[in-house]
Design a protein around this nucleic acid. Sequence first.
DNA 1: AACTCTATCAACCGCTTAGTT
DNA 2: GAACTAAGCGGTTGATAGAGT
Length: 394
Amino acid sequence: MGHHCCSKQKVKRGLWSPEEDEKLVKYITTHGHGCWSSVPKHAGLQRCGKSCRLRWINYLRPDLKRGSFSAQEERIIIDVHRILGNRWAQIAKHLPGRTDNEVKNFWNSCIKKKLIAQGLDPKTHNLLLSSSSSSSSCSHTSKINNACNTTIISHIPHHRIHHPQHYPFTLTTHHGGGGGGGGVTTIAGNFSAAATIDMCPPPFITIPPPQPPPLIDHRHHHHQILLEGHHESNSTIPISNSNAVATTTTTNFQYEDAMAPGLLWGTSNSSESGSSSFSPATAGFGFLDENCFWGGSTSGDNNNNINNNGDPEQPPPLQPPAAAATTGGEQLHVIPPLEPPEAAEKRVIFGSSSTDHQEKGGEGMDNPFDLEFMESSLLPYCNMGSMEPLSWDC
DNA sequence: AACTCTATCAACCGCTTAGTT
DNA sequence: GAACTAAGCGGTTGATAGAGT
């Protein structure tokens, strides 16, 4: 039984032989594929065009990069996946020489398991909140007391919280009786929430959604949310999630969007002792839509698009178009909240031609904080994991 | 050595999207 | 605008290799 597209043909299925590969390569390199349905006929193959196309794209293409994924590629996959979801073709576009099939397989066989092992939902990249309390592999429990009665989880690596006493919330992390000696880490603040969440490392922190426009210091590569009454503080919360960058737009916070690329685990935490040096152009950070993602490296390992093998084939860090054109990448741009792929895909930022945004007012870069727009896109995330949706009534 | 289990990856299947008539 | 076709995409399957027992 052949494919539905070639059921009338007598086609071979299964693995390709070297002879078949040779025929296909020879034909395509000399004639191009043209119409795939005619390729097997002209190439002398007992295959359907669909199979030929797949074989060429996934295996025979000369520009394919073979071999295992580098750590940087892995981070890129995670970062982009967090925004786009299982859109492997779009993710693969950020990994030259990699196919969607390859990325998908790598995700399913490796990355997904790593995330799960870290207590993260591979679909949402957020904490697995529901049943992990009984999990023997997770011994961290955090209680977030939030007077703002708001819960929007954002990705703030636990180890990147500096000077926690300056932050308007209380995060108490109880390190369980497992290895490492346990203990309690308390971050005092002024919001509390009823939620108790498990904090499998790396944990996330609950951040209020946007209300007023953010305080953004465009003079720096990183921006900060100034704590009310604490403007003298140099304390910052590096936020590792573009979602948080856009949604933590409150009068209460000062933040920097350092380490924006989110999930940092494994060997990629090498810069955790640092705090403020950040450049959107060098950190793996920022998403527009699937066609505009820049950066890619989140760790301190070079950020220069050279992978661990010194292979310079990594994709160049894409600049936000407006930034590249108008400010040489110096100006900070605000990233929209994490949102479902369907919405993220249409997101417009940096004053680019997002009809979606324009329909909401068309302000482009003049008003990167279209709050109504952002909040509406944020809503689906107000009930992450098993948490109850919380109000925003600070 | 034989068997089982697991991980990996190539390939297939079916659906969606885009282009053409 | 409907019908058709081709291409693209994501989910799934199955073969294989390697590790473990």
